[in-house]
Design a protein around this nucleic acid. Structure first.
Lengths: 200, 200
DNA sequence: TGTACATCAGTGAACGCGCGTTCACTGATGTAC
DNA sequence: TGTACATCAGTGAACGCGCGTTCACTGATGTAC
């Protein structure tokens, strides 16, 4: 520890800016995010971020990338929490998906939005693919012999993604009621009807 | 027709501003929307909108309200298009939901987002409720005796909402392929497993 | 171990931009009589 | 039908704000010898 406070060089400003950006996102949504505010949060002059990111789009892209990494962690943690059958693993992954949304709603929207850039920014290929692979692996046991795995994946993904966003938007009118109450269980019930488990 | 072009008074500026706002939304997303640009589109000075809306939040709220009305029309039109069994009506409604998303992606996101205002704007109660009633009516035949209708509604809504947003985000990697190809049919297949039709 | 020097990371002032909002105004509309 | 007048809707200039970006700068770091 080298008394980082008074140094001219920050140490890991890039990481600090991403962290600040995520916090801003959670507090006030995409509109609340700016390079100047991130710099201020990181305790640095407003011109400093230019040394680390290609403008605001570059920062947002880095934030989304970090977001996918956190997202993956939520899902894998949920799976590991209980040993489980294939069906339970599928359920747990969905639970992790929802939990991530509850904890990081701003981040989720940026990750699956157009990054507020109008045109598609270069996708965060690596981290996003990793997250998708988790979904794929828990869906795999339910893909019937010889069928395209994308079918089951699209069903599960659509269900849990839609539920998470609607829930966050308060559309089920129950943002305060016990977390896993009514409508979430309805979605889980439908998840249970998906595909055919390869083994009993 | 009273040669509206040269008049000092516009005629129906309020409606024209909403229309301009929707167009801007579809072209460049929420970031592209501003009172000044709407005024310019409507061929009016930038101070004029102040006579009709309570700032940008007020305009966005009016746009979302109009959006829900258009949304409802997409769904009812889809239902009417084929006479149909209960199951077909449910499918058609989902098809209308998706079609609306494809034609009005910017609008959809504003309607179900937080209006870019951080805190919830007063919801567009009336129009939103109307749209929900359409969903409710096509779900009704599949609600088992004595069960809360919200269960089936949450299942259907989550599925089609999630699919629409993921599809619009290009997550299924098939924005160009034939409209109702692969993953949409997967979602429809799951829709077919929902609930228990009251009658055969 | 010590010196010289190139490179890197953050500073602070300045810039132009689009934005929402205010304000005194003016032209058009509609109503009272 | 005609006149007076209040109200309404749009104008155009001006304001301050936060933003991203540029720029010459300077202090810290790391490397060559």
């Amino acid at each position: 520890m080298t008394t980082a406070k008074t140094r001219h060089h920050h140490g890991d400003l890039k990481r600090a800016l991403i962290k600040a950006g995520i916090d801003l996102l959670e507090e006030g949504g995409l509109e609340a995010l700016s390079l100047r505010k991130c710099a201020a949060r990181a305790g640095v002059s407003h011109a400093a971020p230019a040394h680390h990111f290609a403008g605001l789009p570059g920062l947002i892209s880095a934030i989304a990338e970090e977001g996918f990494a956190i997202f993956s962690k939520y899902m894998t943690d949920a799976i590991d929490a209980g040993k489980q059958t294939d069906r339970e693993r599928l359920r747990s992954t969905c639970r992790g998906y929802l939990q991530f949304g509850l904890s990081h709603s701003g981040l989720l929207k940026v990750m699956f939005g157009e990054h507020g850039l109008g045109i598609h920014a270069p996708r965060n290929k690596r981290e996003e693919a990793d997250a998708y692979l988790i979904l794929r692996s828990v869906c795999a046991p339910f893909v019937p012999e010889g069928e395209d795995s994308q079918i089951v994946e699209a069903q599960v993904w659509s269900l849990i993604h839609g539920f998470t966003l609607l829930y966050l938007g308060g559309e089920f009118g129950c943002t305060d009621t016990p977390l896993e109450d009514s409508p979430f269980e309805a979605v889980m019930a439908l998840i249970d009807r998906i595909g055919t488990p390869a083994k009993a």
